[in-house]
Design a protein around this nucleic acid. Sequence first.
DNA 1: TTATTTTTAGACTAATTGGTACAAAATGTA
DNA 2: TACATTTTGTACCAATTAGTCTAAAAATAA
Lengths: 196, 196
Amino acid sequence: MRTTAGRPKSFDEDGVLALAMNYFWEHGYENSTLDDLLVTMGIKKSSFYHTFKSKEELFSRCLDFYRKETEKIMMELKQQIGPKNTMLALTDMTLRELKETGSVKGCLIMNSGKECYKRYTDLSHQIALEFNFMVEMFNGFVKEAQDKGEITSKKDAKIIAGRYMSALNGMIVGIQAGASQELIDDLSDNLRELLE
Amino acid sequence: MRTTAGRPKSFDEDGVLALAMNYFWEHGYENSTLDDLLVTMGIKKSSFYHTFKSKEELFSRCLDFYRKETEKIMMELKQQIGPKNTMLALTDMTLRELKETGSVKGCLIMNSGKECYKRYTDLSHQIALEFNFMVEMFNGFVKEAQDKGEITSKKDAKIIAGRYMSALNGMIVGIQAGASQELIDDLSDNLRELLE
DNA sequence: TTATTTTTAGACTAATTGGTACAAAATGTA
DNA sequence: TACATTTTGTACCAATTAGTCTAAAAATAA
């Protein structure tokens, strides 16, 4: 199946993409320097620019990678624990991350939306697409949960999904701004109620 | 009342603070360069460093200024339209800003919380204080609104206030990530329902 | 006037940044 | 072998950044 001549690529593109994505996720776009990313990815600068156009293009591909990866993970989880519990798992994961590491990263798409807003128009446009893609996925989850009777609320699935996402993001921003444990506890109760 | 010798300060400290605060609010902390800020404040670099220790200290003072200013405005508004309507005004102002300018800035404290999180520990600590100060203020508003019968829900005021703040921030992040008008409309409906 | 302080103005620094250029070595195919 | 391609290494670049320094002018009090 190898048809091209020359030295073959020694690194897996998706592999380094995953590494870069996690670094971006942890540090944000602008706060990730190219040198940091290169160390993380384990490749040299010349090698990087041979494969990727720029830091921005790398980030763009990471955003896409993130959304696809998230979707894949959620779909697999849905098979195991059902749609409602998969959505609740997002809240649980956030709370567990906070307990175990002392901080929360939040959703890469949301973080990037805020960071790129009104400053990187190309990225913002892409982020809007990824965001709405995720909204659609959540809609599907809620719909399925309603069909299965996991969610008894007769509200429009779109409304439930949107409010849940929004409330989750609100909680994350609150945590990052310094919300008390008491407030965090109540906000997570609220999240669970939203899926009843 | 003037006792000190020497040339008197030609600029009002609160005045330039307000100008800097608005610039930070629009552009964020790191994306506001010192030169931009100096132009905005209308003072020279030497003059700036004579009065302020550093960019970080300026920002710190702006955060404090913002919170106090916000509180003052909300207190005044409360006198005119009552506590519940004052809280609802935050949502309305956000929606109006979006309609009129095509974008939303969000709350400076929240924005800064995200930007400084795990990176500027001193600022993060201060932001947590400002944040919880605002939470307390909102609690007071809800309590008063319940006493007046503007809010009929018997839920704990703390819970209502926390959920409202969180939902508002969730909507703002959503808008900045590219939420559809349909979603925005529903989230603002939700915000109104939270204060019933 | 004299002492004190703030102002402007401009040059300067040291560090960081994303990105380019180039050559040599490595690793494959034909 | 000849050719193609990727890799490493290193040097470099141009721009941006927060902050320092120095000196002279301006505005006030005593």
